[in-house]
Design a protein around this nucleic acid. Structure first.
Lengths: 209, 209
DNA sequence: ATCTGTGAAGCACTTCACAGCG
DNA sequence: CGCTGTGAAGTGCTTCACAGAT
């Protein structure tokens, strides 16, 4: 069955809420309550889950632990994922230092930079490789995900090379709309775009002040 | 007229591409070419723009400069936007150091932290205020946007207080689904959610390796 | 000949509403 | 009686296809 992409994007949200409920010792939760926490309608949650199976009990709701396990298995969150970081500048070093990845099973195992100043140095326990050696290093120890934190000008080139190395998931911090073949998944992290999408609604407000 | 939210989210993308074309000295561009650059269908671009007016010339395309000006005016990108940052930890300091905001007219003018260790210190030219003084500081110098970079546990509280201070646009880096009144706009920046949405598609792949 | 602007058609996602199980 | 699972209805966004302007 072909599952709507929006549904896939919501599942991690459900998993996160369930993990929090489990930590609180909750055993059962209804689509109603889960929806309230996440600003999603109960019907949406039930329909989303129904693409994958029947996980609830009528009259009771969902077993928190069981549903969480199901979602983790569906999303592949019960594995370790190996990631490479290209670009060890200001932004790249912040990404290396981010403590949010490891607890969720995402590990950055390599880092690259094109600035000779940084190549060979240690950053957060990793030796910075020259971006020239991307193919060589990835051949030795392949990864599941590529994180791109290079300037806009070189981002497409880096993405092309990651794809050529067999990377099929890319997290792109560079402010470009990258081109990738259909089998490659790419998501953009772009705070400026997010802000610019909100100022439209602020405009009227600000003008009247 | 009520404009579809997805349309608003695409306009900054168009503006960015146009800015790049302008920098290259291009005077005219067709929806076809713009679409190719951005992975958007030409029809989509034309329909999106048609919500706001008729900016093109049949047989020729769009004047790059003119369309860019229009979009900037529609989105409010020709203004300076004042932002406050709550949370001056690792993540917050990375946000303070990010060079991508200022060139687009987004300025962080205040920063807060609840750790007494940091309060009073200078970070990137700003004095760190105590989060306790949020209301006081915002009353003196109000902002348009709030950036939340505090731990999940305190994020909802911080967001409530920002909203109470009249902030109507929030960029949320905390891993929670925040609750805000309908007139407040909020966007989440969450790399882990983005990754977890991609691993679903990687799963099959990784297992067969 | 080329490319826009746009009604109309098509598609995808969301919500409704209720049968059925616990 | 409460809450799930799900066809069917509804909504909103995308794409088509072409008239009309240059």
């Amino acid at each position: 069955m072909e599952i709507p992409p929006v549904v896939i994007d919501r599942l991690p949200l459900y998993a996160r809420a369930l993990a929090s409920l489990e930590a609180q010792g909750r055993e059962v939760v209804s689509s109603q309550e889960l929806g309230q926490q996440l600003n999603v309608t109960p019907a949406q949650i039930r329909k989303d889950l129904s693409y994958f199976g029947r996980f609830g009990k009528q009259g009771r709701g969902y077993n928190v632990r069981k549903l969480l396990d199901e979602l983790r298995s569906i999303l592949g969150l019960n594995r370790q994922w190996r990631m490479t970081l290209v670009g060890t500048g200001r932004l790249g070093r912040a990404i290396l230092g981010y403590e949010g990845f490891a607890p969720q099973g995402f590990r950055i195992i390599q880092t690259f930079d094109s600035d000779a100043e940084w190549v060979g140095k240690q950053v957060n326990g990793l030796t910075v490789h020259s971006t020239d050696d991307l193919e060589k290093v990835l051949a030795d120890s392949p990864v599941d995900v590529g994180i791109v934190a290079v300037p806009a000008e070189t981002a497409q080139n880096v993405i092309d090379r990651l794809v050529a190395c067999g990377v099929t998931a890319i997290l792109n911090y560079a402010p470009i709309a990258a081109h990738v073949p259909p089998h490659v998944h790419i998501k953009r992290i772009d705070p400026v775009l997010a802000l610019q999408g909100m100022t439209y609604y602020l405009k009227a407000n600000a003008a009247s002040k």
